[in-house]
Design a protein around this nucleic acid. Sequence first.
RNA 1: GGAUAGGUGGCCGAGUGGUCGAAGGCGCACGAUUGGAAAUCGUGUGUACCCCUAAAGGGUACCGAGGGUUCGAAUCCCUCCCUAUCCGCCA
Length: 426
Amino acid sequence: MLDIKFIVENTDYVKESLGKKGFAPENVDKLISTYLEMNKLKTSSQALAEEKNKLSASIKSASAEERPNIIAKSREIGEELKKEQEELSKIEADFELQMLKMPNYPSKDCPVGPDESGNVVVRKVGEPRKFDFTPRDHIELMELNDWSEMERIAKVSGSRTYAIKNDLAKLELAMHMMVLDKLRDNGFTVITVPSISKERPLYGQGYLPFSRDEIYYMPADDLYLSGTAELILNSLRADEILTENELPILYAGFSPCFRREAGAAGKDTRGLVRVHQFMKTEQFVICKNDLNESEKWHKKLLAISEEVLQDLELPYQVLDICTGDMGAPKYRQYDLEAWVPSQNCYRETHSCSNITDWQARRTNLRYRDNADGKVKYAHTLNNTGIATPRALVPFIENHQNADGSVNIPAKLQPYMGGKKVIGKGK
RNA sequence: GGAUAGGUGGCCGAGUGGUCGAAGGCGCACGAUUGGAAAUCGUGUGUACCCCUAAAGGGUACCGAGGGUUCGAAUCCCUCCCUAUCCGCCA
């Protein structure tokens, strides 16, 4: 959500800035006219309410003869007021919906582009490995090492699900443990959260009203399945007024995540790249309403996830996501992509975003500023810590040996019971 | 799922139709006192929005949510949500 007063006072800037995200300038004009109309109605209905309140208050001191007149007059105003309020609540709902549809302003430092073609590679770290044998893809490796039950689980749970076993199953959990420890060492509060959500957090995060198709809904209970712990963590402190001293709040949230992948039909249909249910350790930050502060945290979160990929000894690249490819909530977004040998390209493993106060306005998450005593909307940021099983794909492909076994990097070995190699060739 | 008790400001807690945005306490801020602190005393201390403005000021709404009764609702009625405890079931 944006600040309507800012929009009214800086209309040209708003149009230009949101235009970079493909947002039509007419929508800004429409929003402002709705706003002005709403205020006019507010002013008149509040004046009526004032008059009515005054009449009511005068009744107790009025004489017996006056009373019937006052009551009649008050009733009359009540009728009129009710009509105006009905009209007002309609226009307020309209205004609210328009506000909910406004994307966040992108940073002026964002590359500007229409879609993913406009993303900019910031840096590449590590060299894609040159194999002196023909490398297998991750599905072949899983079959060779008795690490999965992909065909059988499809019969049980449908497409885009996975079942992995033996050392690969342990590896999946080991990655989360490693990342949770790293985050804890960086001052994060480790927290496990539900994957079940009411509807309001979806608006708070900015999932709704944009893409209802992507999310599992359980009508019997009017509940949704969360696609990321960000959803839950973003609403955990909703409606609170924190003290500035409590900030920053750093969460390392672990949860199962659920996505319908409705918009990805036909893409990545095999294997572990894109599944309906996965596990994610999420980095989530609530900090002061100060761009220097949130940009500092944005870099910090990015650095942590780069370190994760370095610990996993995976070649990767950092993308500066352009305005057209960024989601509505985002002010700035970096993606990390790890090298996947079988696909001969980099694939996304992490997505690191500064949301500024756009989500906090939706969740009504505020804090009292020490310097001026004012109540302000906090900034929120989120980044992947590690998401599995997707991260297993570049991992086992990059670390495979000719015999199909897979090497475990030193940083991960303590979490794998000291094993240096898993699979057939051990 | 069954039964019971509840949801009031940052927290605790009073309030069963008007004088209630709401007593009292705690906390917090500022001031006095002090060599400094504690204690004590004094003052202040919700949020959102609208109008007006140079500043000031005026107003509306909010006592879990929504609806109803009434000239008037924290208070009465209805529906829903949530929390706690006990019973049942259960990883």
